[in-house]
Design a protein around this nucleic acid. Structure first.
Lengths: 342, 342
DNA sequence: TTGTACGCGTTATCAG
DNA sequence: CTGATAACGCGTACAA
């Protein structure tokens, strides 16, 4: 293995000079700098990560904790994970993947051993048991999701309440009066996943203000459960003309079932989905949707941890950030004015 | 920070004794062992990862390289990633997530800096440019996928050729004569993703032996592209009664479209999917499918890298493993004997 | 602008 | 069974 000392010898300088040349923490004359660079490529030097972590007290690694049995949409999760990884690299950081089966202990472990300089938590529950660990370890952290007490933490999430409200407004504007909200499986609501509750609350509040009658139905998302859900909705409220879907998996089945029941979208029924754009574009008809912002949550979370790491390194108290990113309503082909009552 | 020396002092032993007590690399008397354990919990000691990596020459980290813009099914990818992470933990290893936008350079980087002790590559192409790097760096590696030259490497993948053959056999056994194979988007075939080609070849060979007439059509998987694909198939071969689908995204649309065209599954048309079991169960009717084995590819890949790391550590030449895991045909509700010709 | 020298926390060798 | 002690490779305060 080629060490920094080897490079120093080859370039005829001291090892500290090489170190500083690499870190840029003090000025180096143009000449010695080029000699050092030459030596580095000649020898094929790569700094040793372990030694760097030991001496520098920073591992240049952040941990990303992903849910083990994701109730959330997996591709969305993966997209965030990838965005985190790419964004971290731009800060010279690598990403350690942790699954939630280690539980809070996993977070404690990577923090206490110094394996990670910071942590990003996905799929945060309102009362999340990993949060006390973050506080106790005083490790820089960012949450993707919103716990019920975010003090001392940086958080980022979609503004799901607004997303719900946008759906209600859009359907109300089109003259729909009876709306069905098809949500995630009931387990998600029971687990107190914040996003599900917040969407529903935002929708409910706006729906009431706009004098909408509505039904909320959890749904597993399989074809059969969606069929059951839809049947119950139509039995309970035959006049339902507007559908809001938050369960990505239920979208395909729902469209299929509406068609099968003789209802044409959007002439007989309007459907609005809370989902990524790509998914909205993929269906037929293309779906009117409420979608998160362009700038990825993962990217924001990385910026937040980096800010906290920087502050901690500087001996300062990092300040808490709380970012709820506004969603956008994109009108496509699946919503239209409510049909006239017969 | 609590160090090993602190523990030693507190327990009244030398630091080397503590180190050995933890690693188990030499016998420790029961009494001192308990004193040490006591001290560790009293002080809340956690070994420092950087120091461990530096002194021990092993980081206890493996890198997992995931595709950036996955042409493959994302949930399947995520499942593998999670399986890798869990399996690695059981060996005392953590997983570093690398995306492919760093290209071969990313692999070089983590290997050369000693950040990772081993590498697992996903979405391996037949002629993959990361493989030369693995060979040059002599880093323990396992590939999920099959390159055209696997010498010096350990590989694991589904036996896609057999999967294709099983599909052909099952439909032939049921008396179908005209089959359509709906595959991944054409880009996948152009990229020489081994799995797509191998499935098709396996299917083709068996289909010819069984005197089947068949059509292969790439498909993007959106509702509209699937509609186009199906229309072309039925125009070209109106007598087609059997469908093999390898594109997960196309399954939902295909079922929907067959229904819309007045064809009942399985009475008028049989559909067999090459996909995970959960997905096959999710559709209506539940799909006859060819599915990978229970034991996860990720788990196997981890075992393979661990074996190579162990061999390398012992100064031995690791032996190459090549594991093609046999798929299973599960008959469900979507296939039936071919309809009589009218 | 450059060099010297020490410390980071563990592992492993060599004595006892 | 246990203790000293020398690496491991790099960062940085201090000195020049």
């Amino acid at each position: 293995m080629v060490t920094l000392a080897d490079v120093a010898r080859h370039a005829g300088v001291s090892s500290s000079t090489v170190s500083y040349a690499l870190s840029g923490k003090r000025p180096i004359s143009h000449e010695t700098r080029t000699r050092i660079e030459q030596a580095i490529t000649d020898l094929g030097y790569h700094p040793n990560a372990g030694a760097r972590a030991l001496a520098g007290k920073r591992s240049h690694i952040i941990a990303l904790v992903v849910p083990l049995h994701p109730q959330v949409h997996v591709p969305t999760m993966m997209e965030i994970a990838i965005a985190v990884t790419v964004a971290a690299r731009e800060h010279g950081y690598d990403v350690l993947l942790l699954t939630n089966d280690e539980g809070p202990e996993g977070v404690r472990r990577v923090a206490a051993t110094g394996l990670a300089d910071g942590v990003i938590l996905m799929d945060v529950r309102l009362d999340d048991d990993r949060i006390p660990v973050l506080r106790a370890q005083e490790i820089p952290a960012a949450l993707i999701g919103l716990p019920d007490d975010p003090t001392g933490l940086s958080c980022v999430d979609h503004d799901f309440a607004t997303a719900g409200a946008l759906c209600a407004d859009h359907l109300a504007d089109l003259g729909h009066r009876d709306i069905a909200f098809i949500g995630y499986s009931s387990g998600v609501y029971r687990r107190h996943a914040g996003y599900a509750e917040r969407t529903l609350n935002g929708f409910r509040a706006r729906a009431e203000r706009r004098d909408l009658r509505f039904l909320h139905r959890p749904c597993e998302g399989t074809y059969e459960s969606t069929a059951g859900t839809l049947a119950r909705i139509l039995a309970d409220r035959p006049d339902t003309t507007g559908f809001v879907v938050q369960n990505e998996a239920a979208i395909g089945p729902l469209l299929s079932l509406l068609r099968a029941s003789g209802r044409t979208v959007p002439e007989d029924a309007s459907v609005i989905a809370i989902c990524p754009e790509a998914m909205a574009e993929q269906h037929s008809p293309r779906l009117t949707s409420v979608t998160g912002p362009k700038k990825d949550l993962g990217q924001v979370a990385v910026d937040q941890v980096m800010a906290r790491i920087a502050a901690t390194t500087a001996g300062e108290q990092p300040d808490d950030q709380l970012l709820l990113m506004p969603p956008e309503l994109v009108v496509r082909e699946s919503t239209a004015p409510a049909p006239r009552r017969l």
